[in-house]
Design a protein around this nucleic acid. Structure first.
Lengths: 337, 337
DNA sequence: CTGTTAGCGCCTTCAA
DNA sequence: TTGAAGGCGCTAACAG
C-alpha cells in the first residue's frame, strides 16, 4: 500500500541521489544514467512511494482532473456518459470531479467557480439551459470546455451532441410509414437545445409528409417523468386524441406510459409511442414501438478525446461540434402485450 | 469571473497588508480588525480573487474532496447515491471524485491508490466483492472509509446498507400470502453481500412458511441484465416451473422480463415477480407485482454525513453499520396488463 | 491585531 | 549526468 507520508526526499536519501534526480526518474527524463534509474526505482518500490499529486499540481499547474457538470447526476444518460468518459480519461491518469447544477443557472455558476478554484484542467458540461456566458470560467486561464448532449450559446466551446433532429425525424417518419396521419408530440422546454432540435425533427417529418400539427396535441414540458404524465393526461382529456405520439425523451416516456397504465386505461388500447432514448427497459414498455438510440458511449468517448487533444494542444483555435448519428430501434414482440 | 492568476500576494499588495492577514480574513480568523477586514474583502472582490485550492491543500493536507468508487458508474442506483451525496457534501465545500472499478479487484486497487495520491479526505465505496484487505489505503494516514450498499470484509469501516434480508423476506412473504407455494429465486453471486443477504431473506421466508426450496428453481447469476435473461430461460426450460419468483435486483428483473416478452411467451401468462429495487419504471414492467424500495436518497445522505462527522473527528474509534429499512411496494393496475 | 518566516512536496532552471 | 536552490500559493507558528 502506498504511504502518503513517504516523500521524494525519503527516496532520494534511500537511494543516495538528490530529489531532482528522483523527479527526473519519475518523469521519465532521458538524461538519467540507467544505473541510477534502477537504484531509484528500487527505492521507490521498497518505500512504496507515490508522488503527491497535490504538490505536483501546485508546481505544474495541471491537476490531471476534469470537471463534469450536469443538471442532474441521477440520470441514466449522464451516468453512461460518465462511465465512458472515466474509461477514457482514467487511462491517461485523469480523474473526474462530478458536480450537479440541479438545473439551476445559479448553481451552475457556483460549481464552475469551484472547479476553477480547484484548477481542473478541463470542463465537460451538460448545460442547464442555452445560456452560456458564464462559462467563460476564468480570465487569464482558458481551459478547454466541451459541451456534451446540449449546447449553450454565448461562449466558444467544442461540443459533442446527437443528431437530435435527424433522430426525431426518422422516428416520426416511421410512425407515418406505419400509416398514422395524426401524431401527437410530447416535448420539452424549447430553450433546451435537445428539446428544440427534436421538435424540429418532428415538425419537419410532419411537414414533409403533408401532415399538419394540431396545437392541442403538441405540448412542451420539462423532460421529466411528471411532465410526461401530465402531458399525456392533458392530451387524452381532449376529445379525439391521436393514437400515435412522438416523445422527446426517456423520462417523459416513462411518465406517459405510467399515465396510460393507471388513469388512462380506457383510452390506451391503440396507443403507440416513438420515443427518444433507448433504455434497457424500453423494449419492455407497453406502448413503445420505436425508440431512438443515442450513441452514448461514443459521445462520452469523443468528449474525452477532445479534452485530451486540447490538453495536448491539438485541435487548433477553432471549435468543433461533433454531431453523432442516432439509430432507430423497432420494438414489438407480438402486438400489444 | 474569478481569475486564477490573482494571488493572495496581489490582494495583500492592493490592500496594504501582509498575506498572513489576507489568509486570516479568508479563514474567518477572529483577530482581525474590522476595518482591515473590510479593506481586504474589498480588494478581494475588486480583483476577483479566489483562493487556490491546490496550494491550500498542500499546506493543510486536506483537499476537500471525497473519492467515490463503484463497480459501475452507469447504474441507476449508484447515480442516485451520487446525487444525494453530492447534495450533502457540496454544501460543505466538498467535491466528489468518482471512479469505476469495473467490477475488478485489480482496478479497485488502482483507483484507491490514485485517490490516495490525490489526498482525498475520505472514500466512499461500493466494493466489487467481499474482499476488503486492500482498503487499508495508506499506511500512516488513515482516512475515513465508508462502505455503501455492500460490505466487504477484512477492514474496519463504517457502512450504510439496506436491510437486504428483511426486504427480501417481506417480498417473499407477500408472494406466499398471495397463495404461492412454489417460489423460484433469481439471484446473484453469493460472494457479494447484497446477493447473500437477499438470498437469506428469501430462504428464511420460505422456511418459516414451511415451504421447500427447489434446487432447479433457485439460481445464482451476476446481478446483470443478461444474467436475469439467462436464469429465467434456464428455469422455464425445466418442466413444471413455478409461477412466482423472487428477483434479486433491478437488472436481473429487466433481463427476466425481457426473456418472457421475447422467448418465453408461451409460458408467461401466469408469471408473477417480486423484485428488489423499485425503479421509476418498475410499475410499468409487466410481471412485477411487488418491488422492494431502498431508501437510496437517505443512504447517500447518511454516508455523506458519516464522512463529514468523521472528518470533524466525531464518532469515536468504533465503526458503525447503519442498516436502513426498505419498503415493499405493491403494483398492479388491473391484473395482468 | 499584524507582519515575518518557514515550509507543505514537487519541478526546473542553472551550474557543475 | 547530477545537484543545489528557488519558488508554485497558501497557512501557521512566532514575534512584535
Amino acid at each position: 500500500m502506498p504511504n502518503v507520508f513517504v516523500t521524494m526526499r525519503d527516496v532520494a536519501l534511500a537511494s543516495g541521489v538528490s530529489t531532482a534526480t528522483v523527479s527526473r526518474v519519475l518523469n521519465d527524463d532521458a538524461r538519467v544514467k540507467d544505473e541510477t534509474r534502477v537504484h531509484v526505482k528500487a527505492a521507490i518500490d521498497k518505500l512504496g512511494y507515490k508522488p503527491n499529486q497535490v504538490a505536483r499540481s501546485l508546481k505544474t499547474r495541471a491537476t490531471k482532473t476534469v470537471g463534469v457538470v450536469a443538471p442532474e447526476l441521477a440520470s441514466v444518460f449522464f451516468m453512461q456518459l460518465s462511465e465512458s468518459m472515466e474509461n477514457e480519461l482514467a487511462a491517461h491518469g485523469y480523474s473526474l470531479i462530478v458536480c450537479s447544477s440541479r438545473e439551476s443557472l445559479e448553481q451552475e455558476k457556483k460549481r464552475l467557480q469551484l472547479l476553477a478554484a480547484r484548477l481542473v484542467d478541463a470542463v465537460v458540461i451538460i448545460p442547464s439551459s442555452d445560456r452560456g456566458e458564464h462559462f467563460n470560467i476564468a480570465r487569464g486561464k482558458d481551459i478547454p470546455l466541451v459541451f456534451i448532449d446540449r449546447i449553450a450559446l454565448g461562449v466558444q466551446a467544442d461540443a459533442v451532441v446527437s443528431d437530435n433532429e435527424g433522430g426525431a425525424r426518422s422516428a416520426t417518419e416511421a410512425l407515418i410509414a406505419d400509416g398514422y396521419k395524426r401524431i401527437g408530440f410530447l416535448g420539452g422546454d424549447l430553450r433546451v437545445s435537445i428539446a428544440r432540435e427534436r421538435y424540429e425533427g418532428y415538425r419537419k417529418a410532419m411537414e414533409t409528409a403533408g401532415l399538419s400539427l394540431e396545437p392541442d396535441f403538441v405540448r412542451f414540458g420539462s423532460l421529466h417523468i411528471e411532465s410526461g404524465y401530465k402531458q399525456m393526461a392533458e392530451m387524452l382529456a381532449k376529445p379525439d386524441a391521436p393514437e400515435a405520439y412522438f416523445i422527446v425523451n426517456a423520462d417523459t416516456h416513462v411518465g406517459a406510459t405510467n399515465y396510460l397504465l393507471t388513469e388512462g386505461r380506457a383510452l390506451r388500447e391503440k396507443i403507440v409511442f416513438a420515443s427518444f432514448d433507448e433504455m434497457e427497459y424500453s423494449p419492455l414498455l407497453r406502448f413503445c414501438r420505436y425508440s431512438v438510440r443515442q450513441p452514448v458511449e461514443e459521445m462520452g468517448r469523443t468528449a474525452a478525446r477532445i479534452v485530451l487533444d486540447r490538453l495536448k494542444g491539438i485541435g487548433g483555435t477553432e471549435r468543433h461540434t461533433v454531431r453523432l448519428a442516432t439509430s432507430l430501434i423497432r420494438h414489438g414482440f407480438d402486438g400489444p402485450i
